[in-house]
């Protein structure tokens, strides 16, 4: 079983990270995308440490400029597999940290669920984008991960920062750089 075929028909192919500095205006709320390239995972505990590092004037564990963070913590890989199940976690728990990271250069976030007004404002201010993917489909989504390695905070276990190489990872543009929000359709 793969993610190919008719699945995610009509999706825009998008390369990540967004390091060429081009505006992300072609990404519009509601559009389907297939993401390929490199992203980093970070959840609650990793965010806390990254923000604490920034506050102390230290370098974050990976370059934030143009980068995309996937809010996720994987299951361990069984022998012979790249990674275990790996779907999105609830993005709202990272709302307290996201504006700080956007200010430091972060351009994309992948997760599931609503974001606060403060995050929507940070997204528009810094021209970032929030992608939502399919919560609870971790088995299927793990198929889009081609390579995975822990690059920071290994003591956090599933909350460690992983560098992931992804290919055709399905998502939706949930909040676009103009602040249009799929979760707030009214």
């Amino acid at each position: 079983m793969t993610l190919n075929g008719a699945f995610w028909d009509g999706a825009l192919r998008v390369s990540v990270p967004f390091t060429n500095g081009q505006p992300l205006t072609r990404l519009k709320a509601g559009s389907k995308v297939l993401l390929s390239g490199v992203v980093y995972t970070a959840r609650d505990a990793a965010h806390k440490r990254i923000v604490e590092a920034l506050d102390r004037g230290e370098k974050p564990p990976f370059e934030l400029e143009g980068q995309v963070i996937y809010y996720a913590g994987p299951c361990p890989p069984p022998p012979g597999r790249v990674i275990g199940s790996l779907g999105p976690t609830t993005s709202g728990r990272m709302d307290a940290y996201a504006p700080r990271l956007c200010a430091a250069g972060l351009k994309g976030m992948i997760g599931k669920g609503k974001r606060s007004k403060v995050v929507v404002r940070a997204i528009t201010k810094f021209g970032a984008v929030y992608f939502a993917t399919i919560g609870g489909a971790g088995a299927l989504l793990s198929q889009a991960v081609k390579k995975a390695e822990v690059v920071a905070y290994p003591d956090l276990g599933p909350e460690a920062v992983y560098r992931l190489e992804i290919a055709d990872f399905p998502a939706l543009v949930a909040i676009d750089p103009l602040g249009r929000d799929m979760y707030n359709r009214s």
Binding site: D9, A72, G73, C75, S85, G135, A139, S142
Partner: peptide, 25 residues
């Protein structure tokens, strides 16, 4: 409908490969 279809595919794939349906076990 597409999301629901993906969830059913996810369930099939999880069962076949003994991969957790969701990473949050």
């Amino acid at each position: 409908r597409e999301i629901l279809g993906a969830l059913l595919k996810n369930a099939e794939f999880a069962k076949e490969t003994r991969t957790p349906l969701c990473q949050d076990t």
